[in-house]
Design a protein around this nucleic acid. Structure first.
Lengths: 169, 169
DNA sequence: CCGAGATAGTTTAGGCTTCAAAGATTGGGC
DNA sequence: GCCCAATCTTTGAAGCCTAAACTATCTCGG
């Protein structure tokens, strides 16, 4: 972990232009790790349940929420666009796994809920999913997992801070 | 970080069915962190260069490779399907950022290389990209980054081992 | 040689995803 | 009461992505 290029000075601006290769490597490693896990889960969801990760994620959000969520809420929790949720919900509704109902007092919004069948499906998928994740991360000692969890929390904080500062200056 | 459900025994199989909530939380946190960073970079690539992350990634792969890569090589390095690379390369070729050339001795394959313009574009984008990543991760102390880097390496190892074991039993 | 199997790339069908624009509704200030 | 800005959702266009089927080519054992 050396940083041979640090401390270069930009000829035009005169500002110190440090090379941030370490951060870049950290980000690349974070990304490939996430991609690897995600790919494994994706493949297993398809193989064992004939479904996809976004579908599973939407069911999971609804399951966690209990009494249902508006499309906008789902969009925020899944960190995807609202247009995305529209289509996703339409497909899941067509499959009979979720249902819409009106929100009393706001005719713009609509609630999304799991159907009984949706809940049954999700319970099955969720149990398998938990096992897959544990299996994929089983090479880490409990202390390593704890330390990683903590550091990722710090990283998330850092990213969030930088993002909110940028988007609302 | 407690694990209240650990040690449950499955009624049918009689096997110990430990609840792996900790691993799940670790994975969720890893995923949201990666998603957050990726979203920030995506938005900035669009805003400042009118391009996308996959395009940038493909240019980066070619830049790192020097003398060009076959489509299959790109596909492996980017961890995406080969059909995906076909389309991506076509768009970048249409924009004049990459070019194809034949591979002597293998008429099935073709080399992908940066055009001079593609290289110029990438250099600009790459510098900005490095800065963004550093900015997003600037809330971490150097020791934290080092520790996170190391632990992510361990995690990646664990995932890879579990995946290769599953896919080639 | 030559044919079987592997490899490189494309195509196809379908789903996921975003952004931007438009439609519907709400809520508050005047 | 009315207007206007904010909020909720959908739509449309474009791009990203995969799995699977397909074509073309290569390689190697016999």
């Amino acid at each position: 972990m050396t940083a041979p290029m640090d401390g270069v000075v930009d000829a035009e601006t005169g500002l110190a232009r440090t090379a941030h290769k370490e951060e870049l490597r950290l980000w690349l490693r974070l990304l490939t790790t996430a991609t690897l896990v995600e790919g494994g889960i994706r493949a297993r969801l398809r193989r064992d349940f004939g479904t996809t990760l976004p579908r599973f994620d939407l069911l999971a959000a609804l399951d966690r929420a209990g009494e249902g969520l508006t499309l906008g809420e789902v969009s925020r929790r899944m960190m995807v666009s609202n247009g995305n949720v529209t289509g996703l919900a339409a497909r899941l509704e067509a499959e009979g796994l979720v249902e819409r109902r009106a929100v009393p007092g706001d005719r713009r919004a609509q609630m999304l809920r799991l159907t009984p069948r949706g809940r049954r499906e999700f319970v099955r998928q969720s149990a398998a999913h938990e096992g897959w994740v544990a299996e994929l991360l089983s090479g880490l000692a409990p202390e390593e997992r704890a330390a990683l969890f903590r550091l990722l929390g710090r990283a998330k904080e850092s990213v969030r801070a930088a993002l909110t500062e940028e988007d609302a200056p």
